[in-house]
Amino acid sequence: MNRQPHALSREAIVADAIEQVVRELRLIDVADYIAFIRLEHFACLSDLVESASELFFMPGTLRLGHGGEAYVDWSGAPRIVLDLELRLPGVTVYFQLTMTEHEASVVMNYVSFQTPQDDPDVNTALLSRVLDEARIRRTEKIG
């Protein structure tokens, strides 16, 4: 697949937006991911993603896509790959989140704009704006 020049900036926007969700997902034992994926209990994976994202995004914004993969062998650390979808007003993002022992990364598969513009920078700005609007703002009052 040929990567578009604007794909990297969009991946960075998505990675930044879901950073806190990824922290929550990393609290789950890797053995649970491996079991759910190998046994094809994708509803359980879906519940994990939904629970991790509900503190940071409006309901239904981030959800499991077609499932995931667990890469496990005797010689290295496990690698978990989850197919995820961001459903935003006017934009849907299909991407993969890869989590390893020390890092996480995002690879964008496809971005669908309801009314795409000719300028990719305008579309990228829209993605950034609607992602920001979908975040739940937490304000704490002291005293």
Rank of each mutant, 00 (worst) to 15 (best):
M1P: 15
R3I: 08
R3L: 13
R3V: 12
Q4F: 03
P5M: 05
H6Q: 09
L8T: 08
L8D: 01
S9G: 01
E11C: 15
E11D: 12
V14R: 05
A17N: 02
V21F: 04
R23E: 13
L25Y: 02
L27I: 04
L27W: 01
I28C: 04
D29Y: 00
V30E: 05
V30N: 01
A31K: 14
D32E: 10
Y33V: 06
A35M: 07
F36V: 02
I37K: 00
R38D: 12
R38Y: 00
E40G: 03
E40Q: 10
H41I: 00
F42W: 12
A43I: 06
S46T: 10
D47T: 12
D47W: 05
D47A: 15
L48K: 13
L48A: 13
V49G: 09
E50Y: 02
S51E: 09
S53K: 03
E54R: 14
F56N: 04
F56L: 07
F57E: 15
F57L: 12
F57A: 11
P59N: 10
G60R: 11
L62Y: 03
L62H: 10
R63T: 08
R63Q: 13
L64R: 11
H66P: 00
H66L: 07
G68W: 05
G68A: 09
A70E: 10
A70H: 03
A70V: 06
D73R: 04
S75D: 11
G76H: 14
G76F: 04
A77W: 09
V81L: 02
L84G: 08
L86R: 09
R87G: 04
R87K: 06
L88D: 14
L88M: 11
P89L: 09
G90C: 02
V91K: 07
V91H: 13
Q96A: 01
T98K: 02
E101R: 06
H102A: 03
A104V: 05
V106M: 07
V107G: 06
V107P: 00
V107T: 07
S112H: 06
F113W: 07
Q114K: 12
T115D: 05
P116T: 03
Q117Y: 12
D118S: 06
D119A: 07
P120M: 08
T124A: 15
L126F: 00
L126C: 03
L127K: 08
R129Y: 10
L131F: 05
L131I: 13
D132L: 09
I136M: 10
R137H: 10
R137F: 14
R138C: 02
T139R: 14
T139C: 02
E140P: 00
E140S: 04
